[in-house]
Design a protein around this nucleic acid. Sequence first.
DNA 1: TTGATAACCTACCGATGAGTAGGTAATAGT
DNA 2: ACTATTACCTACTCATCGGTAGGTTATCAA
Lengths: 197, 197
Amino acid sequence: MTSRVRQRLSAAERRDVILAAAVRAFAAEGYDETSMDRIAARAKVSKPVLYDHFASKQALFLAVLESIRDALIGKGQAIAETMSDPKEKFRRSVDAFLQFVEQQPDAARVLLIVPRGDPRTAQLSRKVQAGASAGIARLLVPFMPDSSRWRLHASTEFLKEGLHAIAEWWLDNPGPSREELVDLVMHMVWTGLHQQR
Amino acid sequence: MTSRVRQRLSAAERRDVILAAAVRAFAAEGYDETSMDRIAARAKVSKPVLYDHFASKQALFLAVLESIRDALIGKGQAIAETMSDPKEKFRRSVDAFLQFVEQQPDAARVLLIVPRGDPRTAQLSRKVQAGASAGIARLLVPFMPDSSRWRLHASTEFLKEGLHAIAEWWLDNPGPSREELVDLVMHMVWTGLHQQR
DNA sequence: TTGATAACCTACCGATGAGTAGGTAATAGT
DNA sequence: ACTATTACCTACTCATCGGTAGGTTATCAA
């Protein structure tokens, strides 16, 4: 039987606590700057407990990244399947991304992190980013049907990092509403600067 | 008198050698990932020599950043003073930035680096980035005369990071010419996606 | 109640990196 | 030639961090 006050969590519960702590820590400090000691402190356990659940810092980050990525591609696919008008699909995708930023700011920050120190982790993160790029490129293709390959790639990078910048800016300046931001992005990307105001 | 073969450089010469090595090292590895030992090795001196010329790693990075920034703002001001048409001024600025990337790729990579580890260095880098943002915002103002303050800021961040992404992409994919890239950027930013092709 | 399992801990290891102590020897002015 | 300067070096210190060894005790099944 369980004693009156539970003193130890089950493995699954502890794992979730650690994952949540890791998301917050990575979001606040970045990958390389977050030490396992700090994650352990946030999760209120000692360091070896982390290693009971995750083989390495890299594996822990992988688990965090994967949970975030899965949440995002779920959203993306729903939109891809429902909408047909390319412009509207584009707008809805921007909106979905900002909705994600709004609802899970820590997860969003982790997604925007670019680890540079550990090469394997950097590669891992690039892989997730590449998935995002592919998604954006698919959104973009209808608008540049017979552009050369490099034009599509360069435009995709431009858009992706531009959106990332908007997201980061929003996280630090939460004034405007999501709708206002979506309108701004659509005006910049769709209409362009040529039209005064 | 100097002996037949100079065996030791003067302080100024050595300083320049170190600075050049530091630019290459920071460009290749980033700030946090570049050790003073590696910079010393690239400059073919031992580590304490670095500290004869620069008080700390941070001070060395500062010197590198400042030289780069000065080179850039020189270019920027020349354009600001010569051109008057806002659109043409915009185009010329994009071209100047890409010219900088083309001519000094290592310096450009250092400029695009965002150090996250050392807080003082991160702040320093942000200050330089803020200067770039201010310049971009000035270019943008004529096109959004009575937009709210936050719209200008968000658009500036979007553009700045978009351009950074284009630059990084170009450094890794040097296929297209500078003119082609400028045209692409102008088409995206000025015309927008609404116009097919 | 008792034994097995496993959640959890303290205290360490080895590597790496910023920065320094304390010297040696090439150079420049006299 | 003699001396002061200084460019330059080897060999450290100290802190941090990823990861581990080895033990302790709560929990659960029998």
